[in-house]
């Protein structure tokens, strides 16, 4: 359930483009749609910010278009990370902020689980440098064109372990910690 009572995000893929525009008319979506003309973008209402899904091939181009120009000026990269959706692939998420306009947007790219390659965003913001290094070492994503693809937090020789993937197991003690309290993921619980 979204906070403003509109149709849940999951159903939007069925709606037509015209309905999408109507749903988002009081957000920054129209501006983004205008600025990202020529890129196949799909919006989604987030809890706080607008989420924009961009296809893999156009990511850096879209990010650059969002940064430049006078309309939006997303000059601040707040955060860059990834989410492992197991079979559905890995989402790379960019949180952007425009200091002059005080607006936020979240840009999402989905990478297939067996082909985690993406162009680097360091040409758009320097802030992406370390953030991409961390995302790469934690999820096994390769950012092509990155000027310094070393590990950041992991040891230099552990380049084949990707801890934040769901397939990477917890240590036994950590599993025990979750189980001892008797919780089950997704099950109905006490009130």
């Amino acid at each position: 359930m979204t906070t403003d009572g509109t149709t849940p995000a999951g159903d939007e893929s069925e709606a037509s483009v015209a309905e999408l525009v109507d749903t988002f008319e009081n957000t920054i979506w129209p501006s983004i749609d205008r600025v990202l003309a020529g890129v196949d973008v799909r919006p989604e209402r987030g809890v706080l910010d607008l989420i924009v899904h961009v296809p893999r091939a156009d990511v850096v181009r879209a990010l650059r278009m969002l940064k430049q120009g006078d309309e939006l000026q997303f000059n601040y990269l707040r955060s860059l990370t990834a989410v492992d959706n197991e079979a559905d692939g890995v989402d790379v998420v960019y949180h952007l902020y425009s200091i002059p306009k005080n607006i936020n947007v979240t840009v999402k790219v989905t990478l297939p689980a067996d082909d985690k390659v993406l162009e680097t965003a360091t040409t758009v913001w320097q802030a992406a440098n370390w953030l991409e290094r961390e995302t790469a070492e934690m999820f096994g994503i390769r950012f092509t064109g990155h000027p310094d693809p070393r590990t950041l937090l992991m040891p230099e020789d552990m380049t084949d372990v990707f801890p934040l993937l769901k397939s990477h197991p917890f240590a036994e003690i950590e599993l025990l910690q979750g189980e001892l309290l008797g919780h089950e993921r997704g099950a109905g619980g006490d009130e």
Partner: peptide
Amino acid sequence: PRMLRLPEGQEVYI
């Protein structure tokens, strides 16, 4: 609620 369960498919950046 004593056990907090969050809705599915939601994300936020605070």
